[in-house]
Structures are given as structure tokens and as C-alpha cells.
Computed example of a mutant assay.
Amino acid sequence: MTEEFPMTAADEPGPGICAGRVVIVTGAGRGLGRAHARAYAAEGAKVVVNDLGVGPDGSGASGGPAHDVVAEIRAAGGDAVAHGGDIATSEGAASLVRAALDTYGQLDTLVNNAGFLRDRMLVNLDEDDWDAVMRVHLKGHFLPLKHAAAYWRGEAKAGRARHACVVNTSSGAGLLGSVGQGNYSAAKAGILGLTMVASAEFASYGVRVNAIAPAARTRMTEQTFAQTMAAPEGDGFDAMAPENVSPVVVWLGSEASAPVTGRVFEAEAGRITVMEGWRPGPTADKGARWTPAEAGDATLKLLAGAQAPQPVYGAR
């Protein structure tokens, strides 16, 4: 089921922090992507709305969702165009970047958001379900990133470096793991590594790359969080609305966030958290080769002084 969020005055385009920018949002026909696309338009951006219109498991396809979001943005006075290509193919990703350049003459921000779920416990997970989820999440981040960066590199070499931004979408499952989501967790963890590498490699082109780990009520989470993510009645704050995540995504895709790069942020309800990744903890150095028994004794002592890891989602 697609959540319905009517346009409000806050959604109406104005000068905004993204005025004059051209933004691509993948998977923007529903849920978080839809919220991001509308929020960028409300801040003055021209938006390329990409969506294949597939089901929650990646089956089927329809151009309707992308065109619906474009219609919503235009009805509010904004500027948007739909793109229905498969961004997990090189041709589809290249055509996505071309759509921005052909329509608006530039590209400033890429928001990688497209994805779906095929949840199984690992012993029951089919190879096809593994490949499909890795393809849409990880390859579907890599290819748009590659083609967008090629354009930005060319601009930089021509002396026209842009204040370009990429916002990738990971997950708490990528940070901690999630029982029954081995494929999804692996893909989302891979996106974090991709973000770190891209932020370093693209810095010389003037491109900043960050990632978010959002939590919100979407088609992908409505079954898992059916109780805790129910929308409130009346005028109460809807803590799990996708729109709550979009403000930090819009800020990260604007010039206002310079020089933030190589960072990961959790975003949920009214909370934003800077995530701090792997860092060296307790260390022992013998200065020579350990025996297995010595290595075991040393490791147990190190673990006694280390912080316990946070639990995997769904672990008992």
C-alpha cells in the first residue's frame, strides 16, 4: 500500500536552499524517494523522478508512480520530469544522467534510494533472491554514481567544477545486521563502503558523497513495523512519516552542507545521528608471532576491555 501524504504549504517550491539545482532521485515513485523528490522541489530544485514502478519484491513494472510524483510537483508549481529506466543496468543509469542533462542542462545532486526486499532466513534464501537484492541496492547505487561522476569529472576538467553532491541510502540493517535480511544487510553494508571510497575518489572533482540510514514507514517496512510505525490519529506528530527523513537529505544535497563528505547519518522521526564507524579499540602487540594459545589469551583480555557490539536487529 502506498502511503498518502497531501501536499502542504511547506511542499510548495520557493527560493529554497536548492534553488537552481538539478536533482536526481532514484526509486522516487513512493515512500522515502517520493518524499525526497517533493522536498527538493519545495526547496527550488528541478527534479528527475526515477522509478520502475515495481512491487515491494521487485516484481512487475509501471510508469505510473514516477509520473504521479511529477504531476504532484508540477501541481504545486515545481519542475520535474519522469524517468522509468532500470538504474541497475549501465544503459539505464546512463540514460538517467542524460535525462537530467537533456532536460535541464546540468546535474548537481544524485540521491540513490531505489530498492526492494526479498527477506528469508539465510538457510532458506535462494540465490536468485540474493542476486536480485544485491543488484537493485548495491549495483543500483554504483551505476548511477559512476555515470554521474563521469559527467562531474568532465565538468571539473573543463574548468566548470560543480558543487555536486551524492546522498546514498543505507539502513540500520547495513550498520548492525538484521535477522532474516542477510541479502539486504550485506547490500546496505556494501553501500557504506562504496560511500567511503567515492567520497575519497571524487573529492578532486568537487563532489561530496554521504549516506543516510533512515527509518520510516514505507512499503518495505510496513509489515516489519506494523505496530510501532502506525500513523497517529488526529494532529499528533507522525514520527514514522517518510517526510521526516527528507530535510537532512535535502540539506546534504545542497551547497549549504559543504564541506561535509564521507559521513553516515541515521535519520528517524525528529532525530539525526552522526554514525561513527569502525575505529581501533583495545590492541595488544607482542612484537613477534603469537602461538594460538597466546593469541587466544590476549584476545580474551582485549575483549574484556572492549565495548560490546550493539545487537543485530531481531536477535534474541
Rank of each mutant, 00 (worst) to 15 (best):
G174T: 02
E155A: 15
K146F: 07
L110M: 14
G20K: 06
G53W: 01
S246M: 03
G14T: 05
G44L: 04
K146E: 08
L32D: 00
E201M: 08
V248L: 15
T195G: 14
V250C: 15
R217T: 10
V48D: 14
R316D: 11
P259I: 12
T195I: 13
G172T: 03
P6A: 08
A100L: 08
C18D: 10
V249E: 09
V260C: 11
T195M: 14
M240E: 00
T26W: 07
V166D: 08
G182W: 01
G29L: 13
D68A: 07
T218S: 10
D68L: 02
A100H: 14
A284R: 07
T89C: 06
F265N: 04
V249D: 08
S199L: 15
A10M: 04
A258Y: 11
G84T: 08
N244A: 04
Y313H: 00
Q227C: 01
H137Y: 15
E72K: 02
T103H: 11
A189D: 06
E91I: 13
W152A: 03
A284I: 06
R271Q: 09
L101V: 14
E12I: 12
A284F: 05
A41R: 07
G115K: 11
T273M: 14
Q181D: 14
V49M: 06
V111D: 13
V248S: 11
T283G: 06
G281A: 00
A88K: 12
A293M: 03
G182V: 13
H67N: 07
V245C: 06
G27T: 05
